[in-house]
Amino acid sequence: MGKLIVLTGPSGVGKGTLMRSLIEKHPELYYSVSATTRAPRFGEVDGKDYHFISRQKFEQLIAQEEFLEWAEFAGNYYGTLRKCVLDKINISKLVLLEIEVEGAKQIRKTFPEVLSIFILPPSVKELERRLRSRAQDSDDAVAQRLICSQREIKAAHEFDLQIVNDKLDVTLKKLESALFRPSNS
């Protein structure tokens, strides 16, 4: 049987970078692409980075209970399509989700056997530096994300593992250790 693994943490903590690195090093892992109503950022590809859909379509899928989890964050919906994840778990895949904290909490209720990993920043100051260096959000959006991140960080203890993303190579080794220990194979 496969396993569901959730990576979560505040915006800007490095979840996407960690996920891409894991998938590149371990092609046997299956990355479940989330759906969102937000506009694509420069370089993002529909179906690879996210499934970019309209707010109306997203709300239709919510009503049809097609999401394993969903949340509204910074004015946009984000969610994980149920069927895709369950199909992969049923064929013994390790399925990785990179999702926001509220969605991760929903999954913990639905799938108590999920391995949930909370990625923490080394400091709030460093998190702000990372958010600003992306140059993808306005000052107001960065401020909103920082306020939200402080609330999210307080929930880190609710997850199975907490890993500080201070140095990418060290953080990756810790994630690999968690994913590939004998109980997860």
Rank of each mutant, 00 (worst) to 15 (best):
G2M: 12
G2P: 09
G2W: 08
L4T: 04
V6I: 15
L7A: 03
T8G: 04
S11N: 11
V13S: 07
V13I: 07
G14P: 04
G14L: 09
K15F: 12
G16T: 11
L18Q: 06
R20L: 06
E24K: 13
L29V: 04
Y31K: 14
S32P: 03
S34P: 07
A35W: 10
T36W: 12
T36K: 12
F42W: 08
V45P: 01
Y50T: 03
Y50W: 08
H51Y: 15
I53R: 03
K57R: 12
K57Y: 13
E59M: 12
Q60F: 08
A63C: 01
E65P: 00
E66P: 00
E66H: 11
E66M: 10
W70K: 03
F73R: 01
A74P: 00
G75H: 10
R82D: 08
C84W: 02
V85T: 06
K88E: 07
I89D: 01
I91A: 05
K93C: 10
L94R: 15
L94T: 14
L94I: 15
V95D: 02
L96F: 11
E98T: 08
I99M: 05
V101G: 03
E102K: 01
K105F: 00
K105Q: 11
R108T: 08
F111W: 05
E113W: 09
I117A: 02
L127I: 09
R130F: 09
S133L: 13
S133F: 11
S138V: 09
D140E: 15
A141Y: 00
V142Q: 11
A143L: 12
L146A: 07
I147D: 10
I147L: 15
R151I: 12
I153T: 06
I153V: 14
A155P: 00
A156W: 04
H157E: 15
L161S: 02
D166V: 00
V170I: 15
L172H: 02
L172W: 08
K174I: 02
K174A: 08
E176P: 03
S183D: 14
S183C: 11
N184F: 13
N184Y: 11
